[in-house]
Amino acid sequence: MQNFAQEMQAAFALVLAGDSELLGIVGLSLRVSLFAVLCAALIGMPLGAALAVGRFPGRRAMVVLVNALMGLPPVVVGLIVYLMLSRSGPLGVLQLLYTPTAMIIAQVVLVTPIIAALTRQVVEMLDAEYAEQMRSLGLSRLATVPVLLWDGRVALLTALLAGFGRAIAEVGAVIIVGGNINHVTRVMTTAIALETSKGNLALALALGAVLIGIAVAVNALVSLLGARSRAEALAHA
């Protein structure tokens, strides 16, 4: 294990030194995933809220569909987005394949169902409690939605963080549509896969450490927010 210890040492040296290649890859990863989560939130939250408070034909089926899409296999999403964006595909003229935009699209497809499904759950539960009171105060169903979203803010933030966790850790889809091009579409997960196969374990380990650090930070934030809202709920029981 001499080798491993040395590689670990080299990895931490890279992290501590703020290696420019490392920072470039981490920066691109964060930019792609944050933007993807933002887009997914703009689609998923209204969709989830509509599924929660709306009463329209096909709602039940859509709820089941959105829940099912939470478990989409990333590789399949990558394949489908690849086919859409490839030169002969319907969106080929946009020439987005192997760009960060393509990776963002793939991550949006993966994350939107998560945010939509969790938003629906949160809003539906809150609505069950609020509906009569809001009606009594003269709010229409539509006017109730912003109230529900605001009052569900802690749980919704948790949904966003869950989506971000999925996006930043994802490798199957972005390697297909992004192509893992150095300085263009190389993100943490795809770089780890490549550097490991090249035997450059120091960089792979360093990226792994940063990725785990981000995952732990996100999860810590989620559980912290969860604990806070549970404490509030308990205090009311």
Partner: peptide, 24 residues
């Protein structure tokens, strides 16, 4: 106006619950 058997508390401060109505 109506008050329910189980009070519905908005996820806001005490003052915020009153402010919600006054703002409207």
């Amino acid at each position: 106006a109506m008050v329910f058997q189980r009070p519905v508390m908005l996820r806001r401060s005490v003052a915020g619950n009153l402010d919600f109505v006054l703002r409207r």
